[in-house]
């Protein structure tokens, strides 16, 4: 089945084309977050301007005509309302014009599922770490097949925490990778560490590190905030792995691009002789291919939605989305 997937939950407008699980195209254009971050309405405007071009470039890359498409998928949530709506409208327009079936996809499910495929996993624990989300996930079949949230952040996502801190010490974007670069030269300063079972919280750490801005060396602050937050994620993840007797761990989401985090998680898995894996960075950043990948399977299983039911949900929790 030739399926197009449209992703627009945050500052990326991405379009992917998939056929029989194989990615034919994965194109994107991004809103420049500058030094101010994401302003929802501005991002949505940019997405509207870019949408046609990205869709066309995906079709060109895949070497197909739009009329050859057999199905449509889009990100229903979670994400930023005005941004989500741009992708939703684009997808619905294509579906309506070409009389195609359409599937609303949960963004987090898409990250997890493409990682599962890329890592060759059977039944892994998934650590999903991005700007807005930080969750430890595992598929369960009751009462329907979905990702159960074993643990998650009590306040902010680890990505947003690192970004907010980076702005506090006046770093330029991309914040996460700039923090990582400075961290390489840093020494450790003790910082608050908050893990409660398999859950964790980052706002205390953010406040503490931000208050030290200008009083301690940036390198040391970056090193300490990164080591502390990643250690928290690792501890909670390790506990989840052991509690569920899992043998596989996959990490996904924007923060999964961090080499240090991957190194630490690999160390956790090595201690227990577990399998560890992740998707290519292209799939850890927001992208349309993962949406198309999940949409194709949903459409094949007959779980399309009538157009009037194709809404967007800013807080579409992963445990509410059925997985096929």
């Amino acid at each position: 089945m030739l399926v197009i997937g449209i992703e627009s939950s945050a500052h990326t407008f991405g379009v992917g084309i998939v056929s029989d699980g194989k990615v034919l195209a994965n194109e994107k254009m991004m809103y420049d977050v500058g030094t101010h971050g994401i302003i929802p309405v501005k991002v949505a405007e940019t997405h509207i301007k870019n949408s046609a071009a990205v869709i066309q470039s995906a079709l060109d890359k895949a070497g197909i005509k739009i009329s050859e498409l057999e199905g449509v998928g889009y990100t229903k949530g979670p994400g930023i309302g005005p941004c989500l709506q741009v992708g939703q409208i684009a997808a619905k327009t294509i579906a309506k014009r070409l009389k195609l079936k359409i599937a609303p996809v949960n963004h987090a499910v898409a990250h997890a599922e493409i990682t599962k495929r890329e890592g060759g996993f059977k039944d892994p624990i998934i650590l999903y770490v991005s700007g807005g989300n930080s969750q430890i996930l595992k598929i369960t079949d009751k009462p329907f097949r979905h990702y159960h949230i074993l643990g998650e952040t009590f306040d902010i996502g680890v990505g947003n925490m690192l970004d907010a801190f980076a702005r506090e010490i006046k770093l330029k974007p991309a914040w996460g990778s700039t923090v990582a670069k400075l961290a390489m030269e840093g020494k450790y300063i003790e910082m608050p560490y908050t893990v409660k079972g398999m859950d964790f919280a980052f706002s205390g750490l953010l406040t503490y590190a931000s208050e030290l801005a200008g009083k301690a060396k940036n390198e040391d602050l970056c090193y300490s905030i990164q080591e502390t937050s990643f250690a928290m994620l690792c501890e909670a993840t390790e506990r989840a792995l052991l509690l569920t007797n899992s043998r596989e761990l996959g990490v996904c989401g924007g923060v999964a691009q961090s080499n240090r985090l991957k190194e630490m998680l690999a160390s956790v898995c090595k201690e227990h002789r577990m399998k560890f894996g992740f998707a290519r960075n292209e799939y850890n950043a927001d992208n349309g291919a993962m949406i198309a990948f999940v949409a194709e399977r949903m459409l094949e299983k007959g779980s399309h939605q009538p157009l009037e039911k194709c809404d967007v949900q800013q807080r579409y929790r992963i445990d509410r989305a059925m997985v096929y």
Binding site: Y193, A231, E271
Partner: peptide
């Protein structure tokens, strides 16, 4: 735990 730095 080898994954985290000695101080933590």
């Amino acid at each position: 735990k080898a994954y985290r730095i000695e101080q933590i």
